[in-house]
């Protein structure tokens, strides 16, 4: 990729200071720091989907919010098309227009007191995309049809739609400013599976038609597998593995990626017992030293307990943050995913 990537983030981090009760503050106790995101880097080329997966609390949504400018990063850099937009105030209108977001819960992200027409027209007006009111109306109609609704639906209010239709409205709004990059934060997690399939198909169609780039945040590896070209696996605020989707599922490297792949309930697993992996995600307030995954890792040794592994390029397109992988201590990757019988 010689050309400038559409989105590039470098060593992005955000640390939240937790409130200290007054009594403890008086005793001089320092506030604890929650490192929600602690140094992640990636680049997304135009028209590509990068997915960030991980369990709740790993920081994946925070990454999306940092890129959207909803939080100010503690350190690191965000660039859109080579323009530094790390601080929200650096974002010109022209740059802001190019990046929009779709949230998990359309119920919460659509104003219940606005007609759908006004919800979708707002970005068009804010960015001065249409010449006049008539053109705005035409664009809104076009957007509604593009996401599979009828132009007449614009007169209704969000509560008159089902969950899937509301997510279509969110997508229409996200498209209204003619963005290049859409940050999708668990866009289908609140939907039933048959509706999820409709929305995922719609998102892929729109990507093909409009050349959109997606940053796709999800906890569901099966959905991620379906949607993305490249996948970053996140654990306690850091990426542990970044690889092309096919490679990640065929030959997962990091022990945490393997754990995730092994534990997903899958339709192909009928009648089989699985080895449940012990342990839970530790608190991000006091993460374990060294590699954050070492307490749950079957391959951890002294080095893993003391030295934090960095992402290193491994086989092919993959990058892995694991001492064991680097030293070749890991057993060969299990056969990718669950073999469907």
């Amino acid at each position: 990729m010689a050309e400038t990537p559409l989105l590039e983030i470098e060593d992005l981090a955000v640390h939240f200071r937790l409130p200290v009760p007054l009594a403890e503050r008086a005793m001089g106790r320092k506030p604890k720091v929650l490192k929600a995101v602690d140094g992640v880097s990636f680049a997304i080329g135009k028209g590509v989907t990068l997915a960030v997966v991980g369990e709740s609390g790993c920081g994946k949504s925070t990454v999306a919010r940092l890129i959207a400018g909803l939080y100010r990063p503690t350190r690191g850099r965000v660039a859109i098309d080579g323009h530094d937009v790390t601080a929200a105030r650096d974002r010109t209108r022209a740059l802001r227009r190019r990046l929009t977001m779709i949230f998990q819960d359309p119920q919460a992200s659509l104003n219940p007191r606005w007609r759908v027409r006004d919800i979708i027209a707002e970005p068009i007006k804010a960015f001065g995309i249409a010449g006049d009111g008539q053109e705005t109306g035409r664009r809104v109609d076009g957007l509604l049809e593009q996401v599979g609704l009828a132009a007449a639906d614009g007169e209704k209010y969000p509560h008159e739609f089902s969950g899937g239709q509301r997510q279509r409205i969110s997508i229409a709004r996200a498209l209204a400013s003619q963005p290049d990059l859409i940050l999708c934060d668990e866009p289908t997690s609140a939907l039933d599976v048959s509706v999820q399939a409709q929305i995922l198909n719609l998102m892929r169609d729109l990507q093909d038609d409009l050349g959109l780039t997606y940053l796709f945040i999800s906890h569901d590896l099966a959905v991620v597998n379906h949607m993305s070209d490249r996948i970053a696996v996140m654990y306690l605020g850091r990426f542990v593995e970044v690889a092309d989707a096919a490679a990640l599922f065929a030959a997962p490297q990091h022990p945490y990626t393997r754990l995730l792949l092994e534990t997903i309930p899958d339709l192909g697993m009928t009648g089989r017992d699985r080895e449940a992996v012990a342990g839970e995600v530790p608190s991000p307030i006091d993460p374990p030293g060294g590699c954050a995954f070492h307490p749950r890792c079957p391959h951890a040794n002294e080095r893993c307990r003391t030295e934090r592994p960095e992402l290193r390029t491994a086989a092919g397109s993959a990058a892995v943050a694991c001492h064991a992988a680097e030293e070749g201590r890991l057993p060969p990757a299990p056969a990718g995913g669950a073999a469907d019988g």
């Binding site: 597998n225 899958d266 469907d340």
Partner: peptide, 10 residues
């Protein structure tokens, strides 16, 4: 069943 994405196949 068909509309559920699976890990095994893309």
């Amino acid at each position: 069943m068909g509309s559920i994405p699976t890990i095994g196949e893309r």
